[in-house]
């Protein structure tokens, strides 16, 4: 058999190789998207559980559709629960010192007090800013009056919305404060349209 010219051999080799790589990556991506959708569903289940609604795996989709309104805003995703009390859960993110911090919190819309807060993920300095993931930090937000936003301060004076910042991590504390306040402002604007 006559040997193919080098250019042709190179082109064929690269076309075949690229096709194989692309096809396998597309297949991988399809499987990944399916898992991602499943993870999203599990997260919604957790949110519904947090609202105190009972459901089974089969009834979940209809119950979620009936009670929860999902709104995507620039600051994050808002899950409104029209029950009593009226609640909203927010998943929002923004930048800390080094990394993107992802925060979940829920607010009672009747009293405008925070119910709970969770730092979902972050990449802040362990031992310093990384302490935002410790339970004591999140617990400070429970039943906190957030009608005027939150402020992370070095020494609490008793004013509404004040919590202890993390000493030695002022930039991370400022980041967390900005992320929460932005999300709350967007929430207030969407509830009282001008």
């Amino acid at each position: 058999m006559k040997k193919l010219p080098e250019e042709l051999r190179m082109s064929i080799f690269l076309i075949v190789l690229t096709t194989i790589c692309t096809v396998s990556l597309t297949a991988g991506n399809l499987m990944y998207m399916r898992v991602l959708a499943e993870q999203e569903r599990e997260m919604r289940m957790d949110i519904l559980k947090g609202f105190g609604v009972s459901f089974t795996k089969d009834t979940f989709d209809s119950i979620f559709k009936e009670f929860v309104e999902v709104r995507k805003e620039s600051t994050g995703t808002y899950y409104f629960y029209e029950g009593s009390p009226r609640l909203v859960s927010v998943i929002t993110e923004g930048s800390g010192l080094w990394s993107i911090i992802e925060i979940f919190f829920s607010i009672n819309l009747d009293t405008f007090r925070m119910q709970e807060l969770k730092v979902i993920s972050h990449g802040e300095t362990p031992g310093l800013g990384g302490r935002i993931e410790e339970p004591w930090f999140a617990e400070q937000f429970e039943d906190l009056d957030v009608s005027k936003g939150v402020s992370l301060v070095a020494k609490t004076t008793g004013a509404p919305g004040e919590v202890d910042a993390i000493s030695g991590a002022s930039r991370t504390s400022e980041g967390v404060m900005a992320i929460i306040n932005k999300a709350i402002t967007t929430l207030q604007n969407s509830m009282n349209p001008k």
Binding site: M10, F13, L14
Partner: peptide, 10 residues
């Protein structure tokens, strides 16, 4: 099978 000149791309 890898042609020498395109080995880095490969």
């Amino acid at each position: 099978m890898i042609p020498e000149r395109v080995r880095l791309i490969t």
